[in-house]
Nucleic acid binder design. Structure first.
Lengths: 255, 255
DNA sequence: GCAAGGCGCATTGTACACAAGCCAGAGTGC
DNA sequence: GCACTCTGGCTTGTGTACAATGCGCCTTGC
């Protein structure tokens, strides 16, 4: 109960996923990271008071951070009933991926035109970081950095509305990956990211888009969206019991 | 100072642009509408306390509404310095329009596949309303309804992320139109909207997309994005003075 | 007369106290 | 024994007080 973070002033400046300095940015970043790293499972209730104690700030700050997370779709805000970590359904996941395809295609085309040398340099650096995370076996950081790569790519496209949309899509994608990714953890391969940068640097739009679409295919295929791992639709979960009554319930179904 | 609205409980349910019932929705809708109808000019300061008095609510509610408006890009939130009505630059306007083209294309293609009979019915009804507003000469309502048409179209496309992005884009577009539209006020012609619905109903994707792109061209061409009507770049504003010094300043330049 | 510095006011940022709304559990009636 | 109701506690929603920050005006020196 009494475990509380440090005074929390500018603790995460340039640390972890933190933005600049204000308190809600810090809270936002920490919660977001916890969700990505699955320390907060989908469906988990996010009590305002509890979070306030943990971070050593008042509910006002927490509330703003939650509102922001809700805007990006990684948290569900239910009026009068508090916030929970979003648990996107298969249908929602499909919609996010469809939207991402559209946006990534546009971003790639724009990046080929507008990316500066500095953009490309930063992109390469991010892929390095990503590779390092995976070799360290830090899955959460890997997912996050992979997302930040795509976000940085959007920035290279130099279109503010697309950047903000991409931010939301990447957040949701990360959550979906964390929730649905099947066993093999070799996702979002940094090789593909590197090739993509090469194509952009060569200003080869067709090739870049081709690579990006291929990349999206890979991400898609790594998820098992066909069979939901855990559903809140009781009928769906127990559908196998409805016909052959005799079957015994699964012994260790992790709900 | 003392002019205040009615108790404001559920006053705008089904009225004007109001959503369901909560207070911040009402405040949000009213401010948004005021911006669209240019009763609030770009750059106007939106004081929390003043708005609170006007709407008869505390700053808490106002703050949420402003935050939401800021998320949609029609209000600019400057830390420690309050909120102002956004005044998109020409460059920002171009970016919004570019993004909209991309999204409208995708939405149209999806709507051709997914629009239900009921969707089409509602769309037709909205075009009717739009036409009525214009014949009444209600410019603000016209812009708003025209935007709502495009938003409804996004809903017909059945993709949640795209809907939310479209909402933001439409809001910003409306603001841009209000700010930049040149004299002739025959914008966003409902004829084009009607034809678009026909093409969608006929499930003719190519034709629908063609019409939509044409529609976007029309909107673009009605704006004079080349010469900014009012700029905050002093060098740009007074560039004509920099060469021929003798010129006298304009007598009644409204800054 | 003009520029720089300091002070006071106004406005936003944060925390907290109170009100309102859900949810769970105990109790009761059928 | 089951279901329904009522109540108590807990969580969120809202208003408000206080702190901090930024801005404009005034003074003062040159």
């Amino acid at each position: 109960m009494n475990e509380q973070l440090q005074p929390l002033k500018k603790q995460s400046r340039s640390g972890k996923a933190g933005r600049s300095g204000t308190q809600d940015d810090i809270v936002y970043a920490h919660i977001f990271e916890a969700i990505l790293e699955q320390r907060l499972a989908p469906g988990t209730k996010l009590s305002e008071e509890a979070l306030g104690e943990i971070f050593g700030v008042s509910r006002t700050i927490i509330r703003r951070a939650l509102s922001r997370l809700a805007h990006e779709g990684v948290v569900l805000l239910r009026p009068n009933r508090g916030a929970v970590v979003a648990s996107p359904s298969v249908e929602e996941a499909r919609q996010v991926f469809l939207a991402r395809r559209l946006v990534e295609k546009a971003i790639t085309e724009l990046a080929v035109v507008h990316a500066t040398a500095d953009d490309l340099l930063q992109l390469r650096k991010m892929v390095q970081d990503e590779r390092d995370s995976f070799s360290r076996g830090d899955r959460g950081a890997g997912i996050r950095l992979s997302g930040e790569f795509h976000l940085k790519l959007a920035e290279a496209a130099k279109n503010a509305p697309l950047i903000s949309f991409q931010r939301s899509l990447v957040s949701q994608t990360s959550l979906i990956i964390a929730q649905y990714e099947s066993g093999n953890r070799s996702h979002c391969s940094y090789d593909e990211h590197m090739q993509l940068i090469d194509a952009i640097e060569a200003r080869d739009a067709a090739q870049a888009v081709h690579l990006m679409m291929h990349h999206m295919d890979h991400i898609d295929s790594k998820l098992n969206l066909d069979e939901e791992s855990a559903s809140d639709d009781l009928h769906a979960v127990f559908s196998h019991l409805l016909q052959t009554k005799g079957k015994s319930p699964r012994p260790a179904a992790k709900l």
